[in-house]
Design a protein around this nucleic acid. Structure first.
Length: 287
DNA sequence: ATGGCCTTGTTACAAGGA
């Protein structure tokens, strides 16, 4: 089973990159972030193309900002939008929570696609909001079965100083503060493992590069898109990698996808058997 | 030393990103 996460920075504008990527990499479960579409617009824009490829879809959007989705070819059950008790950014006059998390059971795993708040600056009210949101995420994972959980997405936290290209450049910025890293540690303490760092403990691994200043070309990025996996999926890890090719070329997202390949479960239970779609999508689609 | 870009909505910028 192949699971992927990708902050696409607008599903609509990324459509010419997203659909060929799905055909090329053929992930079974996809966590998307920053779709920047309402549920209706997501269905209208991508629904048919995803159904043709055999994906069941669950989207949690609000329109202009944020928006997360789950695509699955191995079942998509018990969908939950948002986080129980998640904070609302009332400082900004909002009365509804942002669309930043969606959870479903896919292939026997409890998968959450997350778009963690940016935080802006440590002195900004968005920063404590980010910490409160992360606490709500931790609580949800702890209340479930962490062993079978996968939390994947744009965490907007670099776990260590090795996860940013130039630590001094981030002095005084969010994404590297002790409080954010403590929140990430608390989330991991529920029983989730950073499978990328387990596999590549000493490598330079980035998932995001600013559009400006030729950052990608110089590999000056950050590792902020994480796959945090409970013991059941983490122990089945066959491969985990950053799809840098998706960050190249015409009109890319500023984030690259992260892919996790899992071996079949040792007892032979690879999750529910899902029949192929009524009109199977060809492996390579005509232009 | 600083900033460089991209997306959205709306129509010359503003907001947001990280």
């Amino acid at each position: 089973m192949r699971l992927a996460t990708w902050n696409v920075n607008s599903a609509k504008s990324r459509l010419p990159r997203l659909l060929p990527w799905l055909d090329q990499r053929a992930p079974d479960v996809v966590c998307l972030q920053e779709t920047k579409l309402s549920d209706d617009d997501f269905a209208a824009t991508l629904g048919t193309a995803l159904a043709e490829r055999g994906y069941a879809v669950a989207h949690h959007g609000q329109g202009r900002w944020n928006g997360v989705a789950l695509l699955s070819r191995v079942g998509l059950d018990d969908v939950v939008r948002g986080l129980p008790g998640e904070p609302v950014f009332t400082d900004g006059g909002l009365t509804e929570p942002d669309a930043r998390a969606i959870t479903a059971t896919c292939g026997g795993l409890r998968v959450t696609s997350v778009y963690v708040p940016n935080g802006r600056e440590p002195a900004d009210p968005h920063y404590p909001f980010k910490l409160r949101w992360l606490a709500a995420l931790r609580d949800m994972v702890a209340a479930g079965d962490p062993a079978t959980a996968v939390v994947a997405g744009d965490m907007n936290i670099a776990p260590t100083d090795d996860d940013v290209w130039n630590r001094p450049a981030f002095e005084g910025s969010t994404h590297v503060t002790p409080d954010e890293r403590a929140a990430l540690t608390a989330l991991g303490a529920t029983g989730l493992r950073d499978v990328m760092r387990e596999r590549w403990p000493d490598e330079r691994v980035f998932t995001y590069w600013d559009y400006r200043a030729g950052r990608f070309h110089q590999d000056q990025g950050m590792r902020i898109d994480l796959v945090l996996a409970g013991d059941v999926p983490a122990d089945r890890r066959a491969a985990v990698w950053v799809d840098r090719a998706a960050r190249k070329g015409k009109s890319p997202s500023d984030h690259a996808p992260v892919l996790l390949d899992l071996d079949d479960a040792p007892d032979g239970d690879a999750g529910p058997v899902v029949p192929p779609p009524s009109s199977p999508a060809p492996l390579v689609r005509k232009a």
